[in-house]
Amino acid sequence: MSARSSYLPSGRYVPVLATLALLAVMYGAGALRYEAFGDGQVILNVFVDNAFLLVVAVGMTFVILTGGIDLSVGSVVALTTMLSASLLKDQAWPPYAVLPLVLLLGALLGLGMGCVIHYFEIQPFIVTLAGMFLARGLCYTISTASIPIDDPFWRSMADSKVRLAGYFVSPSVLVALVVVLVAAYVLGYTRLGRNVYAIGGSPGSALLMGLPVARTRIAVYTISGFCSALGGVLLSFYMLSGYGLHAVGMELDAIAAVVIGGTLLTGGSGYLVGTVLGVMVLGVIQTIITFDGTLSSWWTKIVIGVLLFVFIVLQRLIAARGTRSAPAAPESAPLTLTAPPAR
């Protein structure tokens, strides 16, 4: 891509490459150990089982890239499943009315939190914590029990399989992939995306450079809210029910996926492809544990914790190296002045 390409990977790709290597090693180890693991369908199943998490993690990536955090995503997912189920079953609304409504609601919740964060200068952590309580609380005002969904559209989304070359995925995976592609385009090729990186790099500078900090910051929380709602819709396809206890702790999974995908929690650095890899790492851990049968489910959490630790310390080391070299080493990128043109 660069005008003067070099053979060494640029420093900013190191975390993503590390995640890719980790994923390859985990998959390789799984394939060696369990015969059926090598089947390509296993990888596709990782996507089938985690499509909703992928969508949520995409929204989280936007937020974390600006240096913020969104704790409300799991609750918004739950609220979406609950509201969809309730509208479909109790109010007998048609799907084409329910879908836009729940997506809009998610985006609105995000918008509201974004406005409070930006205009009242309250930490994202605490605002989205309130949002988390609010969304879960709203779930229980609808019902404290699980509501099954038997809408034909929902059923068809749950049951149908998209086949390609002997393998299959669910429609939700396709939705998730579209979301990933759109998000990657937005981050890489639009002003909004670049402003997200700029704000994450230095909010003060972004303001002084005349970038629309307010609009961008509110936009990322809106995007995260929308992605959570969409993730909730996908989860309701997967579960065919709405329940206030769905997606408890999903915010942690989403944050973990983003961090393991190499995005700096302090903002400004990371790629969407890393997030996809991060979600896959989480999915493969679960798959290995399911395949093994003797390993217990809680090892998932412990392994995720260890990975978080490794990646966070890695980030810390990279950051420390960066700050040390920047002011003290002018030789790192020599300034080359071309000779003034002869006149």
Binding site: G188, Y189, R191, R194, A198, G201, S202, A206, S269
Partner: peptide, 27 residues
């Protein structure tokens, strides 16, 4: 220096007024 260290030199010079076509930045 009030610039963003995480962005490229080119972006730092032109962010906010990038050349675009149909909304997409022409890198």
């Amino acid at each position: 220096v009030n610039l963003c260290a995480n962005l490229s030199v080119a972006e730092n010079i032109l962010i906010g007024r990038e050349p675009r076509r149909f909304g997409a930045i022409r890198w």
